[in-house]
Nucleic acid binder design. Structure first.
Lengths: 343, 343
DNA sequence: TTGAAAGCGCTAACAA
DNA sequence: TTGTTAGCGCTTTCAA
């Protein structure tokens, strides 16, 4: 069923039908009702391609995912974020176009998406320090919002981020308050902006409390269970082992927990484990709580906010960058997570 | 830069330029070279929307994800599958359009995507028993491939699946060979076809070995760490506790492991834990191995195969359903996974 | 308040 | 081997 067919059916011109359907004010109320009824009855849907060509708007948002960033695509956080975006797009009649590219082709992918003109804007995932994509997109003149920020980038840009620095400062203070002095940090890859900020937050709190940061007790890498296990095992074997672990992910925390047990220590009794596995900043212990459940709604909310911001920018043809900084919520688990340091 | 502008620039008609660029054979070699050079020099990219409208092909594949299926979108397996599809789409110049809908609106979403005409085909995720989507898509006449199968659906349809039944039969036999008689099954939600098949494989092997299936040792639910922990804890507290656990997911297995330890037993010494956490069917132990690493390449491969099958069907205008059944690979971990039963 | 006509950028018959 | 001419289905001036 095309617009033309519908128009013929009604004895109207395609123009009028188009106007009626798209809410133009000059249409007679009765006509509009007739048109709406007919469209409904015949299950009419305007052809997207034609609409796009005629209006010049793609009604789609692009997400480019470099595949070699393993911790990105596989991360459940990513899936939930995407789900949040999708909700908003669906509401507003936008499509979500995902492009999966090998790492090296990322720049080309953006350029291609741009010149093919099949999206009206983009969401940038997993910003790194000095991330080149931001300058590229700015230069290309395509509206975009970054999920996260990129330290080192001078050009202004729009972003939605959680206050990672502060979240880790508070987590560290929390452990210090329990009496811990040798606190280990199991971080994500510090090329990633979020991980760099978390480390900064950690170091800041340590410095303020007059605690020494032992480089041997800081590790950065893929946030897997194996990472937590290996790192914790090595640290616990040192002459001055840590009494508390702060990790960037629940998976790492589970690995840490296993290493602690393997060393004959009781997590939550002799060793503290605290983790932050949520881009909206929940802090919880890594033991009794189910994996991947507490973090999900908040990450999805971040996705919604990114999407909403971008769609608003597009609708208003706005160029001025916007920001949204979400504060972390401190949630502390009970059973086998944090504990006071033993005398 | 439009086709027309490029043509004017070259003193050719748009048609010739189009033909040259799209590899039609009747174009003079020299002309083709000139056109190609000019296109490159001016960084010409054909407008996708126009192409779509003119050809009637959307050059896009749709994936509809119902959001309430939590174990679907959040599952890392899902992300990797999508990544596999994306690789193929990128190669062939297709876009991937993701639609996230509330569970209830799923049928409507398909209908809408269809009538808006913005995809040439669809991939169906996470088929359930008697899944209604298959009949719906068939009726709509849109080419589609199901990732998995749906027991109870009579209409023929195209699918790519792993042999879940056989994988679980073999895993159960493996445990039986180690001498286990009380084997527990921690399964996914059995509305999902894959989980139903896994259970069938388990029960089949038990029957063949003359082992009794204790209903109290079978559990189905969300495949989380908590599920594994709770289920195993309850089972281990029974008068006749299991000596081996077979789980549908690595996360569940980790929970089981924790419960086993909590019960004062040593996993891999006094209790066997074997898991299948891979839609291509790896079996491995749930302990020493990093989470979410072994499974990933194979799930991605499944994505590639689905995508390839669908694109071929579209290209050939083929209606006949195709199938691809992938055999499971049995990989057994070393350290703290399976063990012979203790006398 | 409605309609006619042109055009978005491309492809595809048909002619030359 | 190239060009002419019509669309694809919709929106959008401009007239009526």
């Amino acid at each position: 069923m095309t617009l033309k067919e519908l128009a013929n059916l009604l004895g109207l011109s395609p123009t009028t039908v188009s106007r009626a359907l798209n809410g133009y004010p000059e249409v007679n109320a009765e006509t509009r009702a007739r048109v709406a009824a007919a469209a409904l009855a015949h299950n009419y849907r305007p052809n997207t391609q034609a609409k796009r060509l005629a209006t010049g708007r793609a009604m789609a948002i692009g997400h480019v995912i470099p595949i070699s960033i393993r911790h990105e695509i596989v991360n459940p956080v990513f899936a939930d974020f995407i789900a949040g975006c999708g909700e908003i797009y669906a509401q507003q009649g936008y499509d979500m176009v995902l492009t999966i590219v090998p790492d090296a082709d990322e720049a080309r992918a953006y350029r291609e998406v741009r010149s093919k003109g099949n999206v009206d804007g983009m969401i940038v995932h997993g910003p790194r320090l000095n991330d080149p994509r931001i300058a590229q997109l700015t230069e290309m003149g395509l509206p975009f919002v970054v999920h996260g920020r990129a330290m080192g980038v001078e050009t202004p840009y729009s972003w939605v981020d959680v206050n990672n620095t502060r979240a880790f400062t508070r987590a560290t203070e929390f452990l210090a308050d329990l009496g811990h002095r040798r606190i280990a940090l199991i971080n994500g890859i510090e090329e990633m902006d979020f991980a760099a900020r978390r480390r900064r937050g950690f170091e800041r709190a340590m410095a303020e409390r007059g605690l020494e940061v032992d480089p041997a007790l800081m590790v950065a890498g893929e946030m897997t269970e194996a990472q937590g296990y290996d790192a914790a095992r090595a640290m616990l074997a040192r002459p001055a082992p840590p009494t508390a672990f702060l990790t960037s992910s629940l998976l790492s925390a589970m690995g840490v927990r296993r290493a602690v047990e393997a060393a004959g220590l009781r997590p939550g009794r002799e060793v503290s484990i605290v983790t932050h596995d949520d881009e909206l900043g929940f802090l919880k212990n890594g033991a009794e709580d189910p994996v991947f459940t507490a973090t999900r709604s908040s990450v999805r909310e971040a996705g919604r906010r990114c999407a909403r911001m971008l769609l608003e920018m597009i609708a208003q043809g706005e160029r001025a960058p916007r920001h949204e900084l979400l504060e972390a919520v401190l949630v502390v688990g009970q059973s086998s997570g944090p504990c006071p340091v033993r005398p």
